[in-house]
Design a protein around this nucleic acid. Structure first.
Lengths: 190, 190
DNA sequence: TGTACATCAGTGAACGCGCGTTCACTGATGTAC
DNA sequence: TGTACATCAGTGAACGCGCGTTCACTGATGTAC
């Protein structure tokens, strides 16, 4: 062979990796195959030696993003690891680095429109659940409203992205049950 | 005039309304001007009599979506109204009807990439905050982990969509502080 | 009342561009004899 | 060792298409005289 025996497989992995990054950064629709291949030092014509279509790449990349994400998030062993994970997930680095981060958040809108995403999405949700399974959201001294707000937005986003309708309903129900107007003081406005 | 005196303004409003719906359903990138105008019984050429560019329409539509959303969500007067609002926000109807719903969730990914979105986004966040300002997320009997999960995903999504960096940081900090591993029981896994 | 002209919302053909996709080809290497 | 052929990852020109945008035009109505 004129290349090392696994050269083609390596190229395929490079394409998947770059795509997984770009999809999360610019969206699936927003990522073109020509710039993608160019970034790898290849021409776009060669793409179809590796994938049947862009959709096939999307599938492979979503799987890869999920796998990579799961690998970076091993099942937690104690509450210290849970705490670290949560802090990392909610860090400025994660916020500012969508291309390497959780695919649920960066692709949330597009995931709902693509049934391809199903298995992948549910895997990531399941692992995330392990991290927060025995976590409870406590009343913080300040900005408690923002927590409720985040939970509501997140619940809606997740309920649309998740494939399993039962899980979708459970998410909405859980957050609905969890958010309670504090009976203490209520301002009125026009 | 060959049309009623406010005919053009009405057409403009129809374009904005249809766009606001389609952007939330299919995304901004996923919405073309030709099908949009066709859906209104017009030809695409006429579009530029109303807007300078697609970007101008995006701006107007985001504003309209925010305005429409705020109009439908008047400032809450008591906890009953808060409860109703939260239940509606987290309803299956809202989930299944992205085109009429909260623009934050349906456009979350694209909002982060467009600085146009800024003012609009922040207005909706502010109003939503009013609804949940004195709300607290309580420990529900079941699926408490899903609440934490939703809060984390929502916090990340919001922190990317919001224009004000200080608000972005506050959201992350509030949710980080609120999620606590329950000290009760901790399973270990490989 | 009747003709000539101005207005202007909307038409529809055309533009350049980037998209996903196809395909005949290249050229470096491996194998056969 | 040397020539002839097969392999195949990647090349690059070309395709049809939908996009955002432009522009000369239409035709119904309003205004002027």
């Amino acid at each position: 062979m004129r290349y090392t025996s696994n050269h083609k497989a390596e190229t395929r992995q490079r394409i998947i990796g770059e795509a997984a990054r770009r999809f999360r950064k610019d969206g699936i629709e927003g990522t073109g195959l020509v710039p993608l291949m160019k970034a790898l030092g290849l021409t776009h014509g060669g793409f179809y030696a590796h994938f049947e279509s862009k959709d096939a790449l999307v599938q492979a990349s979503l799987d890869a993003a999920a796998e990579q994400t799961l690998a970076r998030w091993p099942a937690p062993r104690d509450d210290a690891e849970r705490r670290d994970f949560i802090a990392g997930y909610l860090s400025a680095e994660h916020r500012d680095n969508a291309s390497e981060g959780c695919p649920l958040t960066s692709l949330s809108a597009e995931l709902g429109l693509r049934d391809q995403a199903s298995a992948t999405t549910d895997m990531v949700v399941a692992r995330l659940s392990e991290y927060v399974d025995n976590c409870t959201t406590v009343a913080a001294p300040a900005d408690q409203g923002l927590v409720a707000l985040a939970a509501m937005v997140g619940a809606l986003v997740l309920s649309r992205a998740v494939a399993d309708p039962a899980m979708s309903d459970r998410i909405l129900a859980a957050v609905t049950a969890a958010i309670q107007p504090a009976a203490l003081a209520t301002a009125s406005a026009a």
